[in-house]
Amino acid sequence: MSQHSRVMTLYKTMLHLGRDYPGGFPYFRNKLKIAFMKNSTLKDQKEIESAISRGEFVIKELEALYMLRKYRALKKRYYEE
């Protein structure tokens, strides 16, 4: 996959994740766009690479956030002691 298409895939994957964001999808989409636009002027291959890996890290963080949020909600609902 070319670097450009990897960035596109990253953006689409994050948009998809944003639909479950606790603060709402419009808020997330806005923030996501700003974050991507900020890096749109990058030219250096290495810098782009590090931006992509930062994006992949954020994806992992978001997945962990959703998992924990769901776990806590269920625990509170069904396992209160």
Binding site: I59, M67, Y78
Partner: peptide, 15 residues
């Protein structure tokens, strides 16, 4: 039960 495991997220590429 709840504590059996931590389910993975269904990511867009996988969907």
């Amino acid at each position: 039960d709840l504590r059996l495991n931590e389910p993975r997220y269904a990511t867009l590429p996988n969907i």
